[in-house]
Design a protein around this nucleic acid. Sequence first.
DNA 1: TGCCAGGCCCTCTTTAGGGCCTT
Length: 205
Amino acid sequence: MTLANQVVILDFETTGLSPDNGDRAIEIGAVKLVDGQIVDTFQELINPGKRVNSFIEQYTGISNNMLKHAPSSKEVMAQFAKFIDGFNLVAHNASFDKKFLDAEFKHNKLHYTGQFACSLLLSRRISQDAPNHQLGTLVSYHQLPNDGVFHRALADATMTSHLWLHQLDLLQQQLPNHLITLDIINKISSLPKAQINRYYQTMAR
DNA sequence: TGCCAGGCCCTCTTTAGGGCCTT
């Protein structure tokens, strides 16, 4: 059994949307939660080996000049593999971050064993009244802490960690007699929206 | 030259289309 409050929450900034089209990571940020507390953080720029376009420079604030002397993917991913060792993983729209983690680890012949959970899929189930499920909107909607920085890896990972802890609180209120595990979260994240309340009732019996 | 992400999820669906979310 894996408790959902013992995870690494991560976020990539990248040159684009698809590693299959040659896009690479340019920054990784992560927050380690133990017993629901932030106990460690990770942030590194990554030299992608090519120039990033002006949209990405503007979107992230990460310039080609900043990346010129950044460490290689090999160096950063080796450190990150140690950081996540033994932990499950959470990201906002995890399918995106998982495909980049898989691609960068494959480039460097690295492996990880943690399972992924997704705060976006969970939000669509348990915060159905939110105006939308973008990270920035949810931070505002739930009035979560933030420092006004968006689209930088550690800032986004930190905001996602506050969102995640808030989501665990919401679930704990619905399931007061249960430990909130990653299995429960992934179960809820895969249910049709209309079945969430029935699931709560079934679990309460 | 022409291609250009992909998984999730809803619906005017399932012999499909399109919006959402991530950079």
